[in-house]
Write a protein that binds this DNA or RNA. Structure first.
Lengths: 130, 130
DNA sequence: CTAGTTGCAAAGAGTTTGCATGGCG
DNA sequence: CGCCATGCAAACTCTTTGCAACTAG
């Protein structure tokens, strides 16, 4: 795991915090950070590290082929279910109780233990529903 | 959309039907079909076509970086919610009524319209549990 | 026939890695 | 200081595409 807090790692963490709950591609992140002197490989390596530490989730927007990274270390993410809007790309949280309830239903009905950490529901948010 | 039913397209459809509900990577599919004289490009092109026709879903297993294709033209897939086991890779269906119920809960609680077609819940199935 | 489809090989996009240098603690 | 992390460029993997040959209807 991360041992040194380098300028590059800090820049990445800052950027991710500032854009929490947005689905960002590695390329977008790299582009934003290259201006601050962070190389592409540093981005990829740190992203990989964070993912391994579970502070980041790798997801794919709908059925697109692109891979997105999402910072999930924030408090709001604890135990809550993620709802991602396919239009604006923003992520919403469903509170723990509601989430637990949902998962409970699936588990009882199908005997299937849903992994909350890996779970993202795609759809259209309230705001984008014109 | 597809106009001609070529030998290659048929081979692909046969293969997908035989492996419905398994998450297959394009490479796996291609490898299996190359023995039957289907080129890599034919696989990709037909896969793309089927995806465009909505007979196929592109998904990513958990948080892996790989892209998987899944044949969703089967009857069982109609309106049902997909539960994919991260251990065995198999896909299970939650019947429409249960699915509708779940989605209804989310919609009411959060005002978020979940897109059923894009929805896959990852977790561990009954068989693979412990 | 004739337009859609294939195969091949080359081009692209995105990600990873080896190695020398740099910098955190 | 020592070791981890960075930068660069080359290597890789997966996917897409151009073009001539082929074939389903």
């Amino acid at each position: 795991m991360s041992k040194y807090m380098t300028r590059q790692r800090k820049a990445l963490l800052d950027y991710l915090s500032a854009h929490a709950d947005e689905a960002l591609s590695a390329q977008e992140i790299a582009a934003a950070l290259e201006r601050e002197g962070v190389s592409l490989s540093a981005v990829y390596r740190n992203l990989g590290g964070l993912e391994a530490e579970g502070k980041l989730r790798r997801a794919s927007k709908g059925s697109a082929r692109e891979v997105y990274y999402q910072y999930t270390d924030a408090d709001a993410c604890k135990g809550s279910l993620h709802l991602q809007c396919k239009k604006c790309g923003r992520t919403f949280h469903m509170d723990s109780s509601g989430a637990e309830q949902l998962l409970g239903v699936v588990e009882k009905a199908e005997g299937f233990a849903v992994d909350k950490a890996d779970m993202v529901l795609y759809g259209v948010c309230e705001i984008c529903q014109d």
